[in-house]
Write a protein that binds this DNA or RNA. Structure first.
Lengths: 227, 227
DNA sequence: CCAAAAGTGTTTCCAATACACCCATGC
DNA sequence: GCATGGGTGTATTGGAAACACTTTTGG
């Protein structure tokens, strides 16, 4: 019983991967970015973008690199979600995956939005195809994290463009939470807790009153009681 | 850009470990169980109990096994906390550690409470020694998780004996949260949300009024609005 | 009857909810 | 002048917070 920490066992040679669930609000739906696997036993299946962790990079760095290489996005909101390590999660052999959670602005130009890429696409989270590995679970945990965190943080800055109307902000919240919010109460709360600031600009939107444009007061993760 | 998922890189041979921060409320303090490292570059340093993940066990299983082997505890509250993977977290070479978070009842007989073991001990979280690796960070994240979760779950069942008084329950909350609670409001809330039930028994405690004994209605993790 | 901890009710206040109307613009 | 979405104020209510006294026991 008097052993030292981490002694006695030989190196276990478990493959270590990062997989990221990238969420965005597109066309009034909460979507997640999927890629099609090109070879091996999972060929043709959809999965989250992911890759192996290299020996000389941290987990966060690995996630950023994979995001850039596989999904073509950089500098987006990214946080660690959960680590999955069932023995049988990958038929090719033992692997452990550190799942990440990312958010992109709907206005960002993504490869997936370009026709050319037939093996990468946004999928509505409400109607996902069967996913490889345990990625369905990753998406589920990711949505849960997103819903919770909307309520007590400014995380929404990762989803909206730099400037937006309060109606757009509210709509994003409604889509993610899956239910409607009272307009007056929402605006009151948002303005109470200095989550956003007026830009002074307005946006004309056809035959109706123009809307004021806002931006987040802070584009770094912050804890605030939003709802 | 059209690569498949997890292809192209060779196996990275990163050592994979689990490390667990085991918390308990002892002698009016929030304590964490530490073990002394017996050999190698970290010899003599204190660290969380941990060990390598074996090739044929899941992460949760590895955490349970290590808990049993290194700390002598079984069947306690355990959940995954966060995964740490800085490149330089271990001078012996690249390693990634899946940190776990555990709770034990103060009445459970632990090896650490027996004089014989000089290399395992409960430390007050307020006055920890320097810890090996990034274990100080693990403890910090664990305490944060514990504090948050007390407020919206029945997680406290992991810390209290099967039967306890409401004063004992309140005291545990106060110690962990680090501030006092109003007795009447606390009891009102606790009784509203059927967190605990009366056992019918009472405990005599010297020259004062005997206290009713309660037990948790549920000893499985549950989401409830406690505070 | 005194000490020591258990146990209980009421008032106050603030924040969440519910709800309906006016405003600015384009056509 | 009307259709469209933008923008605001108030009344109600329910829960959190603050607060003090009575009860039961042992010595």
């Amino acid at each position: 019983m008097k052993q030292s920490v981490m002694s006695g066992q030989k190196g276990s040679s478990i493959r270590l991967a990062v997989d990221t669930a990238i969420f965005s609000v597109v066309d009034g739906m909460l979507k997640v970015l999927l890629v099609r696997i090109g070879s091996g036993p999972y060929e043709g299946k959809w999965a989250l973008p992911g890759g192996l962790v290299l020996a000389d990079e941290s987990l966060d760095t690995a996630a950023e690199r994979v995001l850039s290489e596989k999904a073509g996005v950089d500098d987006i909101y990214l946080e660690q979600l959960y680590t999955f390590g069932s023995v049988d999660r990958d038929v090719r052999g033992r692997s452990v995956s550190i799942a990440y959670f990312a958010l992109v602005n709907s206005d960002r130009c993504l490869p997936a939005t370009i026709e050319y890429y037939s093996d990468i696409a946004w999928y509505d989270t409400a109607t996902l195809p069967k996913l490889a590995f345990d990625h369905a679970k990753v998406v589920e945990v990711g949505i849960e994290r997103l819903r919770n965190k909307l309520g007590y943080s400014n995380i929404a800055y990762g989803l909206l463009p730099r400037e937006f109307t309060l109606t757009e902000l509210q709509t994003a919240y409604e889509i993610i939470l899956g239910h409607e919010l009272d307009k007056r109460n929402f605006r009151k709360k948002i303005q109470d807790i200095d989550l956003v600031k007026e830009t002074g600009k307005i946006r004309k939107s056809g035959q109706s009153r123009p809307a004021r444009l806002y931006s987040f007061t802070d584009r770094k993760p912050k804890i605030v009681d939003v709802l």
